[in-house]
Amino acid sequence: MTTADAVRRRLGLGRLLPLGGAADGAWLTEQAAEAVLRRAAAGVPGVAPGGMRLAPVDPGAADRPAVPPPPSALPPGPLRIETDFAAVAGEPLPVLADALRTALFLAARELLDLAVTEVDLRVTELLDTAADTWEPTAPPGVRAVTATDLAGEAASRAPGVAHLTATLGTAVHLAPDHVRIELATASGHRPLEVVRAVREAVTDALGDGRPVSVLVTAVAE
């Protein structure tokens, strides 16, 4: 992979969002979060989701992670979802906005385990008829890899792991002072539960006390 390819792949992931609290040592790519949130938004009758962004509510009040974070990762703390949407003309906008806000809150909490405390919405278009159904596409840059070392094999066998991925370089990053695992979660498993199982499995397998962080790059519902 060329340097340009690596940069394009990294930018495609978006921000690395804190997953859980400071002690969880976990992050979720904005790309993976947006895919799940868009599916939830598309299920709200009368709206069509547009641009979406996730950001810290107050960057200055974020916590310090307990383990070394991935490069450029956001520190743990509450998040805000900012979303544009088109609405069907004639439908009460406050009703549509409330339904969309509720769907996004529920998806963030129940499917992604993200600490979303605010959802900001902006109507950008009025539609004459119901919006077309949004069909998710496979996210670029998320590819399955095979575990080839002790840490990777332990992570692969943890409950809820669909497969390891390699979007930041390698699926298993072994440093003298920490270990980072990159993975996709399987359907029916909550990301934070998977992360905790992986951290425990890798810690037990290595047995050297190095802290373990986890980056989730894809979430299957």
Rank of each mutant, 00 (worst) to 15 (best):
D120F: 00
W134V: 15
I181D: 02
V142Q: 05
T203F: 02
A218G: 12
H163G: 07
R180P: 05
A138P: 14
L112H: 06
A186Y: 01
V212G: 07
P140Q: 13
A166S: 11
L168K: 02
V214T: 09
R109T: 14
T185N: 01
P191Q: 02
L114W: 08
L106T: 15
A108M: 11
E125T: 11
V123H: 03
A197F: 00
D149Y: 00
A144D: 10
P136I: 09
P136T: 05
R143I: 06
R210L: 13
A138E: 15
L183P: 00
V216Y: 01
T133A: 15
L183K: 01
E200M: 07
G169S: 06
T133I: 07
D128K: 11
V216F: 02
T124L: 05
A175S: 11
A197N: 05
A144P: 14
L206A: 04
A197D: 08
T133D: 12
L192I: 14
V119Y: 03
A201T: 06
S187C: 11
T129K: 09
S156V: 04
R143D: 14
H173K: 07
L174R: 13
R210W: 11
E110V: 12
A147E: 03
R190T: 08
F105V: 11
T117K: 12
T129V: 13
A205N: 05
P211L: 01
A131R: 10
A151S: 07
A171Q: 00
G209T: 09
V116C: 12
E153K: 13
I181R: 01
V116D: 06
I181Q: 00
V172C: 05
T170E: 11
L164A: 01
E153Y: 03
D204P: 02
T165W: 06
T124Q: 03
L127K: 09
V198P: 08
E182F: 02
L121Q: 06
R143L: 13
G207E: 02
A218I: 00
E193M: 09
T170W: 00
A155S: 03
L104E: 04
P159M: 07
T102K: 12
G169T: 08
V123M: 09
A107V: 10
S213K: 08
V212L: 04
L112A: 08
A103F: 01
D149C: 14
L183C: 06
A162H: 04
A151I: 04
D120Y: 00
V198Y: 00
D149V: 04
A103W: 04
A175N: 07
L127F: 07
G188I: 05
